[in-house]
Computed example of a mutant assay.
Amino acid sequence: MTVRMAQLMHVYPDQYEEYERRHNNLFPEMRQALKEAGAHNYSIYLDKRTGNLFAYLEVDDVDKYNEISQTPACKKWWEYMEPLMDTNPDNSPVTIDLHEVFHLD
């Protein structure tokens, strides 16, 4: 069963281009970790007025996907992205999970 997930994050206004550049050059090991965690149809959108990011992805199993946070690839990616955005003490991005209220199939 596919689970749709959505989150809000925030990138600093002077880092929009760098944030996009880094995602366009995603580390191969991070890409592989996402695939192994069952992530697909992953998109991130930027509101240039506010710096707010909207992330949408689909996963096969939420618990399996959440294990990605323990992988060396993910920790490396978080450290790389930390200067560009709001982060937690472990360098993970500050995220707000969104609750789906409507879906048209």
Rank of each mutant, 00 (worst) to 15 (best):
55 A>Q: 08
16 Y>A: 00
46 L>A: 06
32 Q>W: 00
58 E>I: 00
70 Q>W: 11
51 G>V: 02
22 R>G: 12
19 Y>D: 06
25 N>I: 04
13 P>K: 00
71 T>A: 06
104 L>I: 12
32 Q>P: 00
103 H>V: 11
16 Y>D: 05
12 Y>S: 12
82 E>Y: 07
27 F>M: 15
99 H>F: 01
100 E>T: 13
75 K>P: 07
52 N>S: 11
52 N>K: 12
60 D>V: 01
46 L>F: 04
38 G>R: 06
84 L>H: 10
22 R>W: 11
2 T>R: 04
83 P>K: 06
35 K>M: 14
52 N>P: 05
92 S>M: 08
61 D>E: 10
76 K>Y: 09
71 T>N: 02
103 H>P: 02
89 P>L: 06
38 G>P: 02
30 M>F: 10
21 R>W: 12
47 D>K: 09
65 Y>F: 14
11 V>R: 08
98 L>Q: 05
90 D>W: 01
53 L>G: 02
51 G>W: 01
39 A>S: 15
59 V>H: 04
83 P>I: 03
103 H>Q: 13
76 K>P: 03
21 R>F: 13
57 L>I: 15
15 Q>F: 07
53 L>F: 05
79 E>T: 07
90 D>P: 04
95 T>M: 13
81 M>G: 12
67 E>V: 04
87 T>F: 01
20 E>C: 00
61 D>F: 05
88 N>G: 06
1 M>H: 09
70 Q>Y: 13
39 A>Q: 13
59 V>Y: 06
52 N>D: 12
72 P>A: 14
